[in-house]
Amino acid sequence: MLVTALLALAACPGAAHAFGEDEDHPPAGPSGGASGTTLTAGVGTSVTVKQVSGNKGGSPGKPVVAVDPNWKPPSCWYEPVATPEQLKASVDSLKKGGDLVHVTPSLSWGEKLMVDHYEKGKAQSDGAKGYKDFNVGKDGKFWRGVMNPDVADTFEARQCETNLFWQDADSIPDIENAPTPEILAGYAYNKIKVPDTEVEMKPEAKSTVKLPTWVWLDKGEFEPVKVRAELPGTNLYAETTARPVSLHLDPGTADAETFPADGECAVNEDGSIGAPYTRGASKEDPPCGITYLRATGGEPHRMKASITWEITWEGTGGAGGDLPDGTFEGTQDIGVQEIQSINR
């Protein structure tokens, strides 16, 4: 559900595209349409997001979960949507019964409002001044409010519900929820996809009681992941980067000891975590690992390995900062056997 008015420009009979979109870049989410003079809802945002680096192993990756349970991505913001010519063409289409998409269900945008306010220049009931002939000849665009499609329909998300309003070219509205690099960084947070957390172990899958299991991740296995978000029609962008900083081990049972004792294995200077097992080191304490104290029965232990990702951002004009750390957890089955003794 989109709580804003986004009128579509009919490109040909029976077809319509949202302002700023084309056939190669369809809107995110379902479309809407018109029935008489009442318009229906659609979902979408003009923000473009692409992965710049990281997670190159071919896996689509998984989203991280913010460590801070109180952190939330931005709920809504404003975007440029239509030139005067596009708005005029869309209203002309509306007058002829043409199709419209991506409009608000709560503002009931119909022909009378569009003609009175944007063509004839009549003020709205809230005092908003009208626009003569859709501001044709002026340099700028009409803007809309959008709800973040990644969040629920909440009171906060509806704070950007508004009629289309004019903004001169090369400027950003001086209003609450105006787009900023920080808003784009927060939006990009939910677009970060990190590799699955599957660690190397020795012994593999079958440990022995009171003998350490070495756990490690090789250098480059978990490199930084960077995502860039841009708002077309403005000079606003942000690059949000997730860097792996530690691996946390949960043995899956209380009958175990971890190395280090808190189970938090830091990333080494070369980007690896822990150290691979070497021959003859079975009785040494690993820099990252687990010692199980009791054998498993029929069911293996479900060892959890969680990577913590430190997340920062930088954007337009040298802006930047930190976002809450994110985590991604994977599980692996571990069977534990008794020490085999030999009687002579």
Results as ranks from 00 to 15, higher is better:
Asp24Ser: 12
Ala10Gly: 13
Glu200Gly: 12
Glu198Gln: 15
Val146Gly: 00
Asp99Trp: 06
Gly145Asn: 04
Phe328Tyr: 13
Ala281Leu: 02
Val146Lys: 02
Ile175Arg: 12
Trp166Gln: 08
Gly145Arg: 02
His102Ile: 11
Thr38Met: 13
Thr278Leu: 15
Pro287Arg: 07
Asn70Ala: 12
Asp250Val: 08
Asn235Gln: 14
Gly33Ile: 06
Glu269Asn: 11
Gly317Tyr: 11
Ala128Gln: 08
Val103Asn: 10
Leu107Asn: 06
Asp150Thr: 03
Gly29Leu: 11
Trp166Phe: 02
Pro232Asn: 11
Thr48Asn: 10
Thr83Asn: 00
Val215His: 02
Ile334Cys: 06
Ile290Glu: 11
Ala188Phe: 07
Pro224Gly: 02
Val91Cys: 01
Asp250Ile: 02
Ala152Cys: 07
Gly271Thr: 07
Lys202Pro: 08
Glu79Lys: 02
Lys95Val: 05
Glu230Gly: 10
Trp216Asn: 05
Ala34Met: 08
Ala169Glu: 12
Tyr277His: 08
Asp270Met: 04
Gln332Arg: 10
Ser246Asp: 15
Lys62Ser: 12
Thr208Pro: 08
Leu6Gly: 03
Glu204Gln: 09
His17Lys: 13
Asn70Gln: 14
Ala10Thr: 06
Leu293Ser: 11
Pro224Lys: 09
Gly29Met: 02
Asp285Trp: 12
Arg279Ile: 11
Pro232Gln: 06
Gly36Ile: 05
Thr296Phe: 12
Pro173Thr: 01
Thr208Cys: 14
Tyr277Ser: 00
Asn343Pro: 15
Asn135Lys: 07
Glu223Gly: 05
Asp325Ser: 14
Ala256Gly: 14
Ala66Asn: 03
Gly130Arg: 04
Asp270Leu: 06
His25Met: 15
Asn177Met: 02
Leu323Gly: 02
Val91Phe: 01
Cys265Glu: 05
Ala152His: 07
Ile172Glu: 05
Trp216Leu: 04
Glu223Gln: 08
Gln86Lys: 01
Leu236Glu: 04
Ala16Gln: 00
Lys50His: 15
Glu182Pro: 06
Leu113Lys: 10
Asn148Ser: 13
Pro84Gly: 08
Gly263Thr: 06
Gly233Glu: 02
Tyr118Ala: 01
Glu119Gln: 06
Phe328Val: 10
Cys160Trp: 01
Gly252Ala: 05
Asp333Phe: 14
